[in-house]
């Protein structure tokens, strides 16, 4: 009996091996070298090499350069990234919730088709989709023309190279990551619970907030995380749809790595981004109290 148990335990550990090896190779080692790079002597270069000088100052320098607002209108790339990502996540949540709710409860036999349509954008490249938005939001494109016709935009107004375009792009690109977990959560809700709330004197509005919403919280939490985390580090939308005034932290990191070849600064900034995101996520998950939900 004990023999059996031990062997079963061993099988469990063996099953862990591929995943652990994978993580070690593709997460732990790069992470370790990222941490190391963030502490290199900033005076080094790709050409002369870098010395490990435990230069913690890299973090301060990166924060000073990119982490503080320059003015009321210019927040600097780090804060701007979190602002764009946060706003995009809220918009995604509102749009995504309505969509997921409709698919889960109202779509009937169109449910699968609608789900396919939600996933359909994934069948084409992320970049091509974002470039398509460039056409849609272009100065001579349909959206600007309509907005100009109804005088929301002035005659020389534009959407491209504004925060509107960048946030619209982020919302569009990450909406499926919001819809799918929300749908999974909503679809799992026993419809009889909603009937029960109506039976117990809750009108549909109250019923939604007392029953549907709390039961969908796991989906809300995972959807917002799946949207917010990549959105905060995203640089493609800002690069293709924005201008220099919309650059996000991802653009800065990319530039530091590829063009400026300033590895210590790039690594320090990557670490800062990661730490801030992890801190925000931990705080959020604590507050949302997902462990209480079933």
């Amino acid at each position: 009996m004990a023999e059996m148990t031990r062997r079963r335990g061993l099988t469990g550990y063996l099953l862990l091996v591929p995943g652990v090896v994978w993580l070690a190779l593709f997460f732990v080692i790069p992470f370790y070298s990222l941490v190391a790079a963030s502490l290199f002597d900033p005076g080094g270069s790709v050409f002369s090499g870098y010395e490990m000088t435990w230069h913690v100052q890299n973090y301060w320098d990166a924060l000073k350069e990119y982490g503080k607002p320059n003015s009321w209108s210019d927040w600097g790339p780090l804060l701007r990234s979190f602002w764009y990502a946060g706003l995009s996540t809220v918009i995604c949540l509102v749009l995504g919730y309505v969509l997921a709710y409709a698919i889960a409860f109202k779509a009937g036999r169109w449910k699968n088709l609608m789900l396919v349509l939600v996933i359909a954008p994934f069948f084409t490249s992320f970049l091509v989709r974002t470039l398509a938005w460039k056409l849609i939001l272009g100065d001579d494109g349909p959206v600007v023309s309509v907005l100009q016709a109804v005088h929301i935009l002035g005659a020389d107004g534009r959407l491209l190279a504004t925060p509107v375009a960048v946030i619209a792009g982020i919302v569009y690109n990450f909406l499926p990551f919001m819809v799918l977990p929300l749908y999974a959560s909503l679809d799992k809700i026993d419809h009889r619970l909603i009937e029960a709330s109506g039976d117990l004197y809750a009108n549909p509005f109250v019923g939604f907030f007392k029953v549907t919403w709390p039961l969908s919280l796991p989906g809300v939490v995972s959807g917002t995380l799946l949207t917010f985390i990549p959105a905060a580090g995203d640089y493609i939308n800002a690069q293709l749809l924005g201008s220099t005034n919309q650059r996000m932290i991802g653009n800065v990191i990319q530039n530091l790595f590829t063009d400026a070849n300033d590895y210590p600064a790039a690594a320090a900034l990557s670490m800062i981004l990661m730490v801030v995101i992890i801190a925000m996520v931990l705080f959020y998950v604590r507050r949302a109290g997902t462990e209480e939900l079933l």
Binding site: R192, E195, A196, D199, V211, L217
Partner: peptide, 18 residues
């Protein structure tokens, strides 16, 4: 339903899990 003085004990109980 929420305006009727009628209450139901559902087949699966439909207790609110949260």
């Amino acid at each position: 339903p929420y305006k009727r003085p009628v209450n139901t004990v559902f087949q699966s109980y439909a207790l609110f899990p949260h």
